[in-house]
Design a protein around this nucleic acid. Structure first.
Lengths: 352, 352
DNA sequence: TTGTACGCGTTATCAG
DNA sequence: CTGATAACGCGTACAA
């Protein structure tokens, strides 16, 4: 019942009548370094005992662990969850364990978390960063800590990063809207300042519209900032959009992420606008692991999305990090995964 | 630029011209154990260096960490995510870090994970277990590892556990259906064998129907097992339900969890049944942190749910674990949190 | 094939 | 107030 006292390698050695060096060899699978008999004896002793080597002590000696630190900008987002799933799967397959921390979109918190992850022996970091301006990550990387960024990049420095191809994805989406007959694509987004993903989507939007529609979207007219903290609600922006419509204009809202898209959906319902005829709606879809619980697919009309391979981003990032652990001199690279268009009812304007 | 070499307490001691013991005292805030001057000198030295104490070495010595191991049965479920959020918030507030592992609903994996978490120095365990029959957890607890179960219990042994009050919740739901005029409440569930939560919900269903409707629900007629792996689809079960209906019977499906409820929703749509008039639908709602992305609230008709305080379960479980860490002799207790009925359109049968 | 001795970075003890 | 020094549990040259 009681946990008399934690067994150590010495106890095992004593019980097996060998030295702890030999036990250590057994533990590390150096079968060739001892006789069959010794091997078996140790095996037996350990078998009946419930001895568990202390990973802590082992780490202290080896100066490396199989812990991977994960810093998530905002764990409440579906994207983060998918990311963690992917990371978890890969690390699992390779015998690593996740050390998770959430920075709640605060850079200060992120710094503390990362320091803490490192001091706890994380041998590498997977970072979904909260800040685009991030000297701290640069310093950390320079100190020799292997880092792979997940989805979001940082300014002015090349770190390993795994993202999705927002540019191509946005082009696909805009192309789709054009084909369906929407004449006025607009972007609904939150503030982009410290969020490289939103920035990139915004840029991609502008470029894609230029390419495909042949005009330059304007900051004020075609890009709508939603900022609940400043009282700029989705509904008010939708109303502004509605007023700005010219004759025969059929608008389509592109949400910059799941939340924005969902909010736009709610706003459109609230205003009683008819979708997809009066207004179209589409956006990214981060939740890539279960269609059954996936709202774009559950609601009516089903919402057209750009499926972001969130889980795979996590998986690949983890994979890359493990690579870097083995080959510390690998040069940073950017891995960009494809997004897939899921055309559904919310953008089915014409009989196309 | 390069990480010359990790700084140790010795380096700091040398630089400050004191012994490492003194530095250690400084690090642990024993201000009273040294002169103001010494304190300041060390402070300065550490300030300019980027020395970070090694938590590993410290742990080895102190034989305790501020790592909490979390074992999740199935990380892909929304409930798990909410749970982790709650855990994360509490541990965060108290300076602990999460060590997360996912057992993918496999007991074998769960065992391995827990062993690994312990060997990595987790000072306590938060377990959302995958198996109701679970001697392993009992043994582990007996060995002195502090454990708090999250949501799911185990058979034949009292461990600390934080759950939601399924019994009362189910009663509320059934009462609601009765009031709304549904005459035939049925439960849709997956297999319950190793899942205490499903088992409890099933039992609660039976009891509540007896109490409120005054008859005993039958295994075959009123409880529908969905098992995709065995080819028993939601649609086929709905059809079976439909055929079994007597004149004037108005059925209402209760899903045993988010997935089942969502599947029932899809099935009902597919069969073109009209909700809430021809059939009602309700179920638990695990995703308790963002209504904007919450499908029961997004789809039409909005789905009536029993809101499970998933995040709070995590929070309270973590809290309880920290308590146990300080007072190892605390007797196990069960904390049961209330669920809240969110009556919405999917059960709005009459003009009630 | 096996054992000895030492080091890893920190904390605790005890002496000064 | 401060400093040596001995643990902590394990890994690994090096010796036997």
């Amino acid at each position: 019942m009681a946990s008399s006292k934690k067994l150590t390698i010495d106890d095992i050695a004593a019980a097996a009548g060998v030295s702890k060096a030999t036990v250590s060899r057994y533990l590390n699978g150096h079968r060739e370094l001892m006789s069959e008999k010794t091997w078996e004896r140790i095996k037996t002793v350990i078998g009946v005992s419930d001895y568990k080597p202390s990973a802590i002590a082992s780490n202290l000696k080896k100066r490396t662990t199989n812990l991977i630190g994960v810093s998530i900008a905002d764990i409440t987002s579906p994207f983060s969850v998918a990311l963690i799933m992917g990371i978890s799967r890969c690390l699992d397959e390779n015998g690593y364990t996740l050390l998770i921390s959430n920075s709640g979109d605060s850079l200060e918190k992120e710094k503390n978390n990362i320091d803490s992850l490192i001091s706890k022996g994380a041998s590498g970091l997977l970072v979904n960063t909260s800040a685009y301006d991030n000297d701290f990550l640069i310093e950390t990387s320079c100190k020799g800590v292997p880092i792979v960024l997940c989805d979001r990049k940082i300014r002015n420095y090349t770190l390993d990063v795994v993202t999705s191809d927002h540019e191509a994805g946005m082009r696909t989406l805009i192309q789709h809207l054009r084909e369906k007959g929407y004449s006025r694509p607009v972007l609904f987004t939150q503030n982009c300042e410290q969020n490289s993903t939103r920035m990139r989507r915004r840029e991609s939007f502008i470029q894609a519209v230029e390419e495909i529609y042949g005009y330059s979207p304007k900051e004020q007219e075609d890009i709508f900032i939603i900022d609940h903290s400043e009282g700029i609600s989705t509904v008010s922006q939708l109303q502004r959009l509605k007023k700005s419509l010219k004759e025969d204009d059929v608008p389509a809202v592109i949400g910059t992420n799941s939340i924005t898209t969902a909010r736009a959906y709610h706003g459109i319902s609230e205003l009683g606008m008819s979708m997809p005829d009066e207004i179209g709606l589409c956006g990214p879809e981060d939740w890539d692991w279960s269609n059954e619980l996936n709202w774009p697919y559950m609601i009516r009309p089903h919402v057209t999305t750009l499926k972001v391979p969130s889980t795979e981003i996590g998986y690949r990032a983890a994979q890359r990090l493990l690579q870097k652990l083995q080959h510390p001199d690998l040069l940073p690279e950017e891995i960009s995964l494809h997004c897939v268009l899921n055309a559904r009812e919310s953008t089915q304007l014409k009989g196309k």
